[in-house]
């Protein structure tokens, strides 16, 4: 009895907060997606699956889903490999390990908006005195309008480098934590058995031992790729090039007079299902 009361005393407020601020809005969104909900969140016109049908035939929305599936295909392995490599390097050095760990982690603490503005306005601006264009000028090349040009689509270079700079540190930290949990005895046993440090121990000890960490990192990376918003919104705005699904949905439902919650929430549900599907498939592949 006393136990039950203590349980609810501790858990109750948080469960209530979770229900009110997380589950209720999710449930409400799903409900809205079946209504014609323009400029209202208490709609009365039930439209069944019409909003879903509209979104599934909506050119820009489908294109953004396609673009970001492709984006995930590139950026997930890239971030994975780079953060793993960095983690191995940082973990391998004998001195100043904490310093390097902090140095690489620091960008993660930077605001996405601030970083986007630095990338857009200082490094990759299109005028001749921007950082990237100054470097180009050393080699006699003409200035490039990095965030504007679509052929070749240089904006991907801007956004991928930005994303890597912001996120590598976080995944680096996850990998370092994973690396430090591998018992030293395994390496010693391998050494006795004649395995040479380097590729062999990496391939047969480190990577298998990092399996759970790797799966978690992949999962987070995949979800993150589909949920991209801040840096794209701040660097590219609302154009048809490199527009994430969430930016499109934001303009449908919220930004600048959209207020079409029916279609917006239907799109959000479709996106959630897609993310769930992709992560489940990914889990299947990697946990077999």
């Amino acid at each position: 009895m006393r136990h039950a009361r203590a349980f609810w005393l501790f858990v109750g407020p948080f469960a209530l907060g979770l229900a009110v601020f997380v589950y209720l809005p999710i449930g409400w969104s799903v409900l809205l997606s079946f209504f014609d909900a323009r400029n209202t969140v208490t709609p009365s016109t039930f439209v069944g699956f019409d909003n879903y049908a509209d979104m599934l035939t909506d050119g820009p929305f489908l294109r953004s889903l396609g673009t970001f599936s492709l984006f995930a295909l590139f950026v997930v392995p890239l971030t994975f490999v780079l953060s793993l490599a960095l983690a191995l390097l940082v973990n391998g050095i004998r001195f100043m390990r904490a310093f390097f760990r902090s140095v690489f982690f620091l960008p993660f603490a930077c605001s996405y908006v601030v970083a986007s503005l630095v990338w857009k306005l200082s490094i990759f601006n299109g005028v001749r005195f921007g950082l990237a264009n100054t470097v180009l000028a050393w080699f006699g090349a003409d200035p490039v309008a990095w965030t504007v040009s679509t052929s070749p689509p240089w904006y991907w270079l801007v956004l991928v480098t930005l994303r890597l700079w912001l996120q590598l540190g976080f995944y680096l930290l996850l990998f370092i934590a994973g690396l430090q949990r591998i018992p030293q005895v395994l390496y010693e046993a391998a050494w006795v058995d004649g395995a040479r440090p380097g590729w062999q121990t990496l391939r047969f000890i480190t990577l298998p031992q990092l399996r759970t960490t790797s799966v978690a990192v992949l999962l987070l990376l995949l979800i993150g790729a589909y949920q991209a918003f801040d840096e794209f919104y701040n660097v590219l705005g609302n154009g048809p090039f490199g527009r994430p699904p969430l930016v499109y949905l934001y303009y449908t439902a919220l930004g600048s007079g959209g207020q079409d919650f029916g279609h917006g929430t239907a799109g959000a549900v479709i996106l959630s299902l897609l993310i769930a599907g992709v992560t489940l498939a990914q889990g299947r592949v990697f946990t077999r």
Binding site: T150, T252, G257
Partner: peptide
């Protein structure tokens, strides 16, 4: 000139102007 029209029109103009 609703937000949906605006987005659609601007997308087209962007593709015409920037992408040919």
């Amino acid at each position: 000139w609703t937000s949906a029209m605006r987005t659609s029109f601007k997308d087209a103009v962007a593709r015409i102007v920037r992408d040919g």
